[in-house]
Structures are given as C-alpha cells and as structure tokens.
Write a protein that binds this DNA or RNA. Sequence first.
DNA 1: GCGACAG
DNA 2: ATCTTGTCGC
Length: 234
Amino acid sequence: MLRPLDTLDVMQLDFQHEHPWDVSTEEATAIQERLAPRVTESSLSGDVETVAGIDVSIRDDTAQAAVAVLRLPDLELVDRAIHRCDVAFPYVPGLLSFRETPPVLPALAQLSVTPDVLMTDSHGRAHPRRFGFACHLGVLLDHPTLGVAKSILTGEPDRALSSEKGSRTPLIDEGETIGGVLRTRTGVNPVYVSVGHRLTLDDAVALTLDCSPRYKIPEPTRQAHRMSREIEDE
DNA sequence: GCGACAG
DNA sequence: ATCTTGTCGC
C-alpha cells in the first residue's frame, strides 16, 4: 500500500527554521559540521516499496528539480513532480546541498505519496565533513535517504574492483569507511554509494542494485534526471 | 604554492 | 552541471 504524503509533510516543514540558506561558504561549512552528528545509520525497518529518485538541472541560473517515485521490484513510475525556481548558491565542491535543496523541497511537497526511501545523485557521508547532499536532505526531512554519485568527492577505493556486476569495495577516507564503490553493471565504471540518513551502507548498496537492473545509474535517479531536463514554457 | 574537486 | 555527433567496443 502506498503511503500517503502526510508522513513526509514537506509543506509543513519550515526548512529555513533549521538554518538560513542565503549564507557564505564559511557559514555553509559550519552548518554542515553542526548537522553532521545528526545523521543516523540504522537498518531500514520493513520492506521498501517505493524509492524516489531526485535530480536537479540548472540552466541560466534557473533550477528545475525533479522527483520520480518508482515502485519495487518492477520499477514502475507511481508518482512524479517538478519544481522550477532561481538558484542562489553557486556550485562549490562540498556545498552542493546549498544549491540543490531549495529547488528539491517544493518538488517533494507536490507528491501525493510518501516514498519509503529518497535517492539522490550525490554523496551522503562520502563527503569531507561526512554531510553531503543526501545527508542534508535526509536530516531535514528525517527520512531514509541514500546517495549514489558517479565520481568521487573524497576518499579512495579500498581495493581494485572485479568487473562483474555486484562487485563492491569500501570507499575509504582517513582510515574510515565512508561509502561503497559498487559495480552496477558488468564491465561498466562503478558508482559510489553512501548513507544519507536512517539506513545502513548495506541497505544503500542493496537498494542501488535493486534499482539498477539495466543501467549503470539507478532507475529512479535516471528518470528524475530526464524529467529535470524536460522543457516546458509558461 | 600545487593539485583535487559530488553536480 | 552544461556545451554537443559520431563512433569505438562488448
């Protein structure tokens, strides 16, 4: 049974209450350090029926956020939302959430179902301060979230990966496991999976594989990416 | 100082 | 991310 939106009531969330978003890079960094301890890593409870892929495209200082909610295991689209607005914060490696969160929250608020898990095309704990976009979004909403990125921001693979689908190795930074390097397709470059909030790295890896039966990029994120690039005029 | 650097 | 066509390889 699909969960109604009320358990993820973004409309009620005054996300500016936690902290301002119009901040300097120094302030943004301090906010990350303050919120990072709030990330929790515990096993998902119950079956995951729906996963929401989240992505943002930016053209000429205008952001278009897209959310695609897919049902497991068939990966059928059950809900979707788009939100367009101006972007204020520049792209700074390590501060992506300050650029992408403001467009994403209003898009999530448009959903008519509550996805069990949120999936971003970014890092979660695999971040210099262990607080990537996936963590920031997860903590703000207090909802299970994972990050699946296409390249490394910080850290390095523990060992070389074999070329078979499902092959994985820890992503290590300063002696700490901050995520996983995962081959989602045989013979294709791996993706980098990490915890955003309220799930374990093993949960995140398993979900990523469940969502990637055909392509390197998981289906929820893939669809969100396509939607974020759809052009509409008004 | 130099190189690295999610999207 | 974004600007962009064909093309090499499994």
